[in-house]
Design a protein around this nucleic acid. Structure first.
Lengths: 233, 233
DNA sequence: CGGCCAATTAAGTATGACGTTTGAGTCACA
DNA sequence: TGTGACTCAAACGTCATACTTAATTGGCCG
């Protein structure tokens, strides 16, 4: 969905990263550069650059005389988009989807409240447009088109919040929504109630009603959590 | 507060990173590797490794025949702890503190609610201990000791939430709290009301009262926002 | 048995050579 | 004069190799 292996070091990364995040090399495992050099049939330079990147993601730590050691899971930079992609592609995808959905449930309502205050007229218009797009694609097995509008809607909300930290979660939300459509049940058309909620959020933002926008978004994320059987107090 | 320049590439990073995030090299600027090589008096190997790391943070993009170009701010991996540190150390520290405080206000209450359900007895005990520690250090210019308990308290909440995404925000919160003590007013002792709120959160978690823990934490973060003059609806 | 020293190992750094991409300039032709 | 293809060179990308540094291991000596 984003970059792709241009350059050998990227190719190595796209092989090593998933191998680490998926547990093929569990925490504590030790890799040696010359071994990798041989395995990927590339030069030392390339391996070292890949290792440096993995190190900056806190996936590994490189120490002299010992090798490149995989770090414990708790220390990984789990907000790194690349790490998120690797983990979503791996075995603990369900677990990862839950974590991210909980994060969404915390962030998106607050973002919607802020968006209601700060959204530009253009952003309001975009929101409305995508909400209506969701309505018009919510029936008749148009899940692909529906997803496009859904993702765009949430991206606009996050961006319109005016908070860069929220805005950067757009990719994460996109992954979660895409993952849900691809992997989850979702054989059937989207829940009409959810569609309506999006329309009403767009309305609330347009009318600068922060409290309502937040509350409605909270309903949306609550629905997303329910889909994954996450705690329902 | 974390790693330090062990290795030349790390030294280069600690110089280039802040230079980019602080705007010394604004987006669109172009760096050439051989120029950097000379400026830092290190080999290509070292420069290239540093560049790879900056690239993985989405701070720069390296293209043939053109050089290493600084990317637009919106594309930076603003959740990377190292990027956060660099930006907090730079000129737009106030702006960064606001962004992060808003993020806290979204995440921490939800985390506290989850902690109330999931915290282990040990974590409950830790919470209580740090809350009491805050009480006992809240008077008489013991800001340093107070800060230690404050940071520890919020770390436990985030970790006890059982959500790895939340848990990894512990460092961010620590930076924000530390930054407030160091840079903000805070000449005077901490607000007694805030101290009391922490004690009550610990209580609520201990009593498994998720709604109360969430609401009380929302009050804490609202206070933090008020300190920074962030919107007060 | 314990502490100290040296040998070994694997990462870190430096350097020279070559390959590859691609922007930019040039030149010819319409 | 404008447009097209063609050439050139600048900058990164990759490789191979030699050397340096740090840390672990293990043996030697007290």
């Amino acid at each position: 969905m984003e970059n792709q292996g241009q350059g050998l070091h990227a190719r190595v990364l796209e092989s090593l990263g998933p191998a680490i995040t998926s547990g093929t090399y569990p925490p504590g495992s030790v890799l040696r550069t010359d071994e990798l050099e041989e395995r990927f049939d590339v030069s030392r330079t390339v391996i070292r650059e890949a290792i440096r990147v993995l190190e900056s993601m806190h996936l590994v730590v490189s120490r002299r005389r010992v090798g490149v050691t995989v770090r414990p899971t708790e220390e990984w930079n789990v907000y790194d988009p690349q790490v998120i992609r690797w983990r979503l592609a791996g075995a603990d995808r369900p677990r990862q989807l839950r974590s991210l959905t909980v994060l969404r449930s915390a962030v998106e309502p607050v973002a919607a409240g802020l968006a209601a205050r700060l959204a530009t007229p253009e952003q309001c218009e975009e929101l409305t447009r995508h909400a209506l797009g969701m309505v018009s694609t919510s029936r008749g097995q148009q899940l692909g088109a529906y997803l496009v509008h859904d993702v765009a809607f949430h991206r606009v909300i996050l961006r319109a919040s005016g908070n860069e930290m929220f805005a950067r979660l757009g990719d994460v939300v996109a992954e979660v929504l895409t993952g849900r459509t691809e992997h989850q049940v979702m054989f059937t058309d989207p829940d009409p109630a959810a569609v309506t909620l999006h329309v009403r959020v767009a309305e609330a933002v347009r009318e600068r009603d922060a409290a309502r926008a937040e509350a409605l978004t909270r309903e949306i994320t609550a629905g997303a959590m329910a889909e994954l059987d996450i705690l329902a107090p």
